[in-house]
Amino acid sequence: MDETFVPSETVRTDGVCGRLFHGLGDGPHPGVLVLHGGGGARGYEGTYAAMLAEHGYTVCCVEYFGAPGTRDALVDVPLEEFRDAADWLLDRPDVAGDRVGVVGFSRGGEASLVVGARFDAFGAVVAYVPSCFRWQGPSWMAGVGPNQPTWTLDGDPLPYLRIEKHVATDEIDDPLGNVGPNPPRLALERASAAERDAAAIPVERIEGPVLLVSGGRDTLWPSAEMASRAAARLANRDHPWRVEHLENPDAGHAIRVPYRFDGTTDPTATHEFGGTNAANARAATRAWQRTLSTLARL
Rank of each mutant, 00 (worst) to 15 (best):
A194S: 15
A168T: 13
A199P: 10
L211P: 04
V210R: 06
Y160N: 01
V243C: 10
L212I: 09
D170H: 15
A199T: 10
A227D: 02
S192M: 08
L211D: 03
S228Q: 13
E164R: 14
L153S: 13
D174C: 11
E225Y: 03
R217W: 04
V203K: 02
R217G: 03
T219W: 13
A232G: 10
P184M: 01
E189V: 07
A224T: 13
I172W: 06
V210M: 06
G177V: 07
D156L: 10
E189T: 10
V203Y: 03
D173E: 15
P184E: 04
R190T: 05
N182S: 09
D218N: 12
G208R: 02
P175R: 13
R233A: 12
H166C: 07
A187D: 04
I172L: 09
E189D: 14
R237F: 04
N182P: 01
L188V: 05
H166S: 07
I172Y: 07
D173L: 15
P209D: 01
L161K: 00
D170G: 11
L234K: 00
D174R: 05
E207M: 05
P157E: 06
L161C: 03
R162C: 09
G208N: 04
P181D: 05
D218F: 12
A232I: 00
L234V: 01
P184D: 04
V167W: 11
P222F: 04
A230T: 09
D154A: 13
D154E: 14
T169I: 14
R217E: 15
E164N: 08
D170P: 12
P181K: 00
A168P: 10
L211N: 03
P240C: 10
L220F: 11
P181R: 02
S223A: 14
R242S: 13
A235M: 05
P183R: 14
N178V: 13
V203N: 03
A198N: 07
G216W: 08
R237C: 04
